[in-house]
Design a protein around this nucleic acid. Sequence first.
DNA 1: TGAAATGAGTTGCCCAGGCAAGTAATCCCG
DNA 2: CGGGATTACTTGCCTGGGCAACTCATTTCA
Lengths: 161, 161
Amino acid sequence: MMGRMDTQSPWLDDDQQALWQALLTVVIALPAALDRQLQRDAGISNFEYGVLAQLSMADEATMRLSDLARVSDSSQPRLSKVMDRFEARDWVARRPDPEDGRYTLAALTEAGRQKLAESAPEHVAQVRRLVFDPLSAAQRRHLTPALTRIAATVRRELEGG
Amino acid sequence: MMGRMDTQSPWLDDDQQALWQALLTVVIALPAALDRQLQRDAGISNFEYGVLAQLSMADEATMRLSDLARVSDSSQPRLSKVMDRFEARDWVARRPDPEDGRYTLAALTEAGRQKLAESAPEHVAQVRRLVFDPLSAAQRRHLTPALTRIAATVRRELEGG
DNA sequence: TGAAATGAGTTGCCCAGGCAAGTAATCCCG
DNA sequence: CGGGATTACTTGCCTGGGCAACTCATTTCA
């Protein structure tokens, strides 16, 4: 008898609906708001900013493309095209990994580091205004583990397919 | 004396960084995961699903395009093109608002309602798996008001520009 | 009342990203 | 040691969305 389960009806109740609606707005509108500021002030997207930031945090500011794609939540084709643009502007340099020729290493150049440093302050201010300022200290504390769990689940979903 | 304020350094501390990183993964990867399921099972995007769902909840399943754009967190051009696709598939019908010829009313057709009904169960299941299942009851309770605040702030940002 | 201003919606152009197919390097295993 | 799998990355094709410019309806106000 495979009727629907009691604890998991196929619909969302009102509380769940409220959470879901708020999350939907955040995932749709927040990237748009971040993109707008960054595009205006720095000519790059939020996603591109994230790639630069991840790379800058790596040892020697150098990473394998596949690792960079993973931490940036990017597909490989998408990252590949971002790298084309970055290389054209001399923000990164690609070279084959001497340890294994299948991998490609991406290294942030000095110009790339500078671009990131220039763009950071206004971007961080925007993140503060949109995300941190509206929250109480308690809300921030509660939010982190909850979002981390969702993030981990979503990551698994995209990798596992 | 307009130096930087003590309580608002231009950088994120470690706790903030953790929250921000988790939120970034969610806003980038969650739509991708939702899109993948919906595209595979229903041939529509998460965004399009949201538009259908919003319209279905309206009185008479009819709304002005500008209102529909607002509740769907959409620009007008974007919604306009979604409507082109929907009308081509006979999921919605557009007609001028008799009360004010500048507005356009969009009404969900029977076929549109059916498409939504067909797509809903798997989509809701995916939302459950990715968002609700990983959270404890307490986390869900805390999450809702926090996300609602961020959502409201981001909405204002995009409208006010 | 009529010309300018406002507001809703659409269109065209351009670019970014997904997917599937292609290339290249390495590994596996007889 | 050699040919087929596996893994990393790139390329081409197509679609979706942003922006700016346009059209059309309504309001404002001189």
